[in-house]
Design a protein around this nucleic acid. Structure first.
Lengths: 251, 251
DNA sequence: TGTTCGCCTATTGTATACCATGCTACATGT
DNA sequence: ACATGTAGCATGGTATACAATAGGCGAACA
């Protein structure tokens, strides 16, 4: 895949749509691209990410790649060893539990704040969300539910009106993407029912309930994931070690 | 200031102490250096950080500088506008409150977990810390107390035994450095008394108490800071706009 | 046969140089 | 007074070169 960024001095390529490409720098695009590739499983835990190869794969130079990797490293999606390069982060069961634990607390806090500060605007958005959710449930439209899932979390984060918490939640969701992405049996219906309950708690301004429900929601999702992930042997979990690496090949 | 890193191909410099300098890459050193410069106030909120100037100032090329800036951007210490470069982040009062709010919650959670999982090793470390604290108090050694402050937070984070929480707390402390760094009247004594109480709560395994005390501790510190920061007019707070910028020498 | 040492290779870390583009400020024209 | 042109600066990116290093692999060795 070639990033359609403006090419450097050397190669001319075609000056096609040089305009319109103004927003979001290459490194940003790259960061998102790689992040997505990790979240969707194209790069699997343990896979090596080599600067040169990525640069070639995306048709960019090493600099943006490096900067993107720095970002992903901090986000916790990559493990970087000095002079040895980056690999997609693996998660042991313990770490997964830790992540769930923290995320549960943060979502709880988020919901609590949302309930505390629920104003008319938020209220309207919640009603809208509930409506769309009901429709998606009736139509059994799981794709839409998945989207609503994202919207839900975003709304909560927004409603909590704490910039820092919002950023943290974003990072945390990024770090725990496997909770949903890796899940084979997407428990869409249960999940949305829980969401509904949380939203109602927020609407009624019940901080405590909202908080508890939100926490439990995360624990449930996390537990569902952990149950699914049965260790075959005593083997290192979440690994794809036999796979050589993230070579560009079949892509 | 010149970073004593191994120089590139061009300049030879002297091969002095090329060994021993193996740990931590330039960009890491740079990141810490700049972070420290921000935290200690050498670069003030609003100051512009120009890549070239930083590169020259630290005697390195632009690449490591850029990567360092990316890191600091994510950490929230820098605000970066596309094509406009980075400035040291400013905090409005509202943001400060938000930061305090979140950090209070996280410290509370941290303390709660620490209390829940307090094992013998942690217990020993707590006793050690308490001892050192008592001594520092008796000697009125404020510098030592400041150090103990750091140790305290580190111990709590460690005792909570949640890798993600630990990382978040680190980032959060980085983002709220001004709570202590900017504080003119370092409320060392009060602070340590609160620390003591928290540690005792943890020792006795009282999750709830530990959590509440820890939260309140942060609120107190935050309040102390906010009180201090009196707005002269209706002006934008935490700004040093009249200062030209972070230009190097005669500029 | 198992271990240690040293070389080789792949990759990262850094430097250098230059180009393209977007801002900003300033100058200019109306 | 206001719109417009323009020059300079700083960023974002490309390309290239080279040094340093971690690990792998094989040779020498016990």
């Amino acid at each position: 895949m070639r990033m359609t960024g403006r090419r450097g001095p050397g190669r001319a390529e075609s000056p096609e749509q040089v305009l319109g490409m103004r927003h979001s720098s290459l490194r940003e695009t790259l960061t998102n691209e790689i992040r997505m590739a990790i979240m969707t499983g194209r790069y699997k835990p343990g896979d090596r990410l080599v600067e040169d190869r990525l640069a070639e794969e995306y048709g960019v130079s090493r600099n943006p790649v490096r900067e993107a990797m720095r970002v992903l490293e901090i986000e916790g999606l990559l493990e970087v060893k000095p002079r040895r390069g980056a690999t997609v982060a693996k998660f042991t069961d313990d770490e997964a539990k830790e992540a769930v634990e923290l995320r549960a607390s943060l979502e709880g806090l988020s919901a609590r704040l949302a309930a505390r500060r629920c104003n008319d605007e938020v209220r309207a958005q919640i009603f809208d969300l509930l409506g769309r959710g009901r429709r998606a449930m009736e139509e059994q439209n799981w794709e839409a539910l998945r989207q609503l899932n994202d919207d839900f979390h975003q709304l909560i984060a927004y409603a909590g009106s704490n910039r820092f918490l919002r950023e943290f939640m974003h990072a945390m969701r990024s770090k725990t993407f496997w909770m949903i992405a890796g899940s084979k049996s997407w428990r869409g219906r249960d999940s949305w029912k829980e969401h509904e309950a949380i939203l109602h708690a927020i609407l009624s301004g019940d901080e405590e309930l909202a908080s508890i429900l939100a926490s439990r929601h995360v624990y449930n999702a996390g537990q569902a994931f952990l149950d699914e992930r049965v260790q075959p042997d005593g083997e290192d979990p979440a690994v794809a070690d036999t796979e050589p690496a993230a070579r560009s090949g079949g892509g």
